[in-house]
Amino acid sequence: METWNYVEYAAWALSVLLGLYMVVDWFTIDTTYSEDVLTSSREGELEAMTEESHKG
C-alpha cells in the first residue's frame, strides 16, 4: 500500500461524512420546523422593507 491509496480512502470517507452531515441536518431541520416557516421566503422583501421605512 502506498500513501496515495490511503489518500483515496480518505477522500471516499470524507465525502461520505460530508454527505451524511448534510442529509442528517436536512432531516433534523425538516422535522423541527414547520413547512410554512421554511418556505416563507418571498421575493422583493427588500423593496417592501424600504417602503415600510419610508412610510414609518
Partner: peptide, 25 residues
C-alpha cells in the same frame, strides 16, 4: 436601511410579505 436605494419613483403600496426565514444579507 437608508443605504438601500432600490426604490421606485412611484409606489404601489406593497408591504412586507411575511418572510420568516430569508436569505442572509
Amino acid at each position: 436601511m437608508t443605504d438601500f436605494d432600490i426604490t421606485s419613483a412611484e409606489r404601489d403600496g406593497m408591504g412586507p410579505h411575511g418572510t420568516k426565514v430569508g436569505l442572509l444579507r
